[in-house]
């Protein structure tokens, strides 16, 4: 039986810089030059002040888990064999949130506010930003 392929991002005008950044192991987010707020996901204008002066900046890649869930059945057939796995909303130190998986941890130990850092993981021809616990 053919292996079910996981859905990979389809880059567009907003996102190709972000995904290219991942290929270079850089987590790029946007910052508004008018109101100074950070922005994620990427947009053509700032959702806070509608300025078009948005620029790419490299995130520290560090943050904490704002919330999470453990998928016991997978988000569709392509993810079934991976279950259980953790999907989280990571709040980066810059203040924006993004979806990712928490890896390199026993999923039963994932919790809110856990400090995490980005780790880039290859998936077919793509590099996805995943997160792992920061071990002191």
């Amino acid at each position: 039986m053919a292996e079910l392929k996981k859905p990979l991002p389809i880059p567009d005008g907003d996102s190709h810089v972000f995904w290219q950044g991942c290929k270079e192991n850089k987590l790029l987010i946007q910052k508004c030059n008018d109101c100074s707020k950070h922005i994620f996901y990427p947009r053509i204008l700032c959702p806070h002040c509608f300025s078009e002066k948005v620029e790419w900046v490299e995130s520290t890649g560090k943050g904490k888990i704002y919330s999470y869930t453990i998928a016991r059945r997978g988000g569709g057939p392509a993810f079934k064999d991976d279950a259980p796995y953790a999907v989280a909303l990571i709040e980066l130190d810059e203040g924006v949130r993004m979806f990712s998986n928490i890896i390199n941890i026993d999923v039963e130990k994932v919790k809110c506010d856990l400090p995490v850092e980005v780790v880039f993981e290859e998936q077919e021809d793509f590099i996805l930003p995943k997160f792992q616990p920061i071990f002191n």
């Binding site: 991002p9 567009d12 869930t69 392509a78």
Partner: peptide, 11 residues
């Protein structure tokens, strides 16, 4: 959805 679906969030 490109920032969500690749991570397998049950929908």
């Amino acid at each position: 959805a490109q920032y969500e679906t690749p991570f397998g969030l049950p929908s």
